[in-house]
Design a binder for these strands. Structure first.
Lengths: 227, 227
DNA sequence: CGGCGACAACTTGTGTACAACCTGCGTACC
DNA sequence: GGTACGCAGGTTGTACACAAGTTGTCGCCG
């Protein structure tokens, strides 16, 4: 299929495809198949898969294949609880370093989401939010915090993406536009603490919407009350 | 050398050897050499090294070797700032799950450190603190927080270990005994918030001692004022 | 018809040969 | 003597062959 990829780009592409549910939880990835797809041997593919395994997104099983990690709510609830705290930390120990170009890109992303008109595929919204998050993660000044936030964002994004078809798509779209808008305002003032407050607020609202939707079901997203 | 190792155990051993400065920053690790030492081929060694690379402890350079990451104080200052915050989180979102056996093991470790009599090798103290931290990390209830704490502990432990020969060894020994003692008390009450306060206090005292020692030098450990 | 066992076709883990690349030393040349 | 070049040795990255393991299928037997 697509050629000229190295281990790093294969990792990034696979991570995105897993986040966006192109490879749904529980599905099997074959090293041989991926190697053929990317036009390389198994070696760089294995490196990418091993990193995905360290990040908890896949599990290699000898004789079976590499399984995309199933969604484990018991665990992901803990991840949500941690992410809630990490958002606060972004405000506490990140000197803002955003350029005018970054702000313009965020505004572009907001407009792209705003002009989406129903019916649009849920994947479009999921991808837009992924891009927004990537751009915002880049603005985190504290490098280990940036890496940690990135890591756990990709572990949880599948939950919202999987629930998206059952949510009110237009409501979700508006929420994202509002979030980008308010974050953009705070960033223009170089006020990372306000960025954190905004993100925390939208994060909690998102958790509430998801919980409302699956109320009565076995699963519980319920974070924020880990202790 | 030692045989019967798989990628996982090679990773753990190498990580410990890097933390304890058996492989000092800047030194070269050869895949062939390690493969011969562990009695396996390059493949499992490469897997271990790749994970160390993802964790930021080594950097593979084509045609040169795998370099143990030099100590970068600009970066590690950020890691210290994050670790300070993570310690608080341990108190906020970790239900304690320690058994009597865990407590007994910690008491044993405390006694082992207490009975150390000068002159003793700095490595002994460094290894003891590593073990204490391993045991305590295991008690963190929130899994992603546990993994993150573990990761960044191993990135920063080399700093203290490298400074140790220039510090007052007996003072450091007493500090560790005191820390384990106070943590043990708090754990007996299942009071993770108090554990966090104790650890934060000792962490800050340790930073201060290190800064005092290298005052006037080019380097600055100075965390806690990242914002 | 049901169960069970051999087996074929896959998977990942390991070992090995080779390609691409860097470094340091020896040597020739200025 | 100093400098530049070339090559030898060693390193990681890649590709491939094989070992170890799982799963589903097909056929045989009770």
């Amino acid at each position: 299929m697509s050629r000229g990829h190295d281990a790093q780009s294969i990792f990034e592409e696979l991570r995105e495809r897993i986040s966006l549910l192109d490879h749904p939880p529980g599905s099997l990835l074959s090293e041989n198949r991926l190697a053929a797809d990317y036009g390389v041997s198994r070696t760089p593919v294995r490196r990418a898969l091993q990193r995905l395994e360290f990040e908890g997104l896949v599990t290699a099983v000898r004789g079976v294949g590499t399984v995309v990690t199933p969604i484990d709510m018991m665990y992901l609830t803990q991840v949500y609880a941690l992410r809630l705290k990490l958002i606060d930390l972004i405000g506490e120990l990140s000197p803002a370093h955003v350029t005018g170009a970054d702000l313009a890109l965020l505004a572009e992303q907001r407009d792209a989401v705003r002009t989406l008109r129903a019916p649009f595929p849920t994947r479009r919204l999921a991808e837009a939010y992924l891009r927004f998050n990537e751009e915002l993660t880049r603005a985190i000044g504290n490098r280990p915090l940036r890496e940690t936030s990135d890591r756990y964002f990709h572990q949880t994004s599948r939950v919202w993406n999987q629930l998206l078809p059952e949510l009110d798509l237009d409501e979700e779209r508006c929420e994202i536009v509002a979030e980008i808008d308010r974050v953009l305002d705070a960033l223009r003032d170089r006020d990372m603490a306000r960025v954190a407050r905004v993100r925390r607020s939208h994060f909690e609202r998102c958790l509430r919407r998801m919980n409302d939707r699956i109320a009565g079901a076995d699963l519980e997203v319920a974070a924020a009350r880990d202790p």
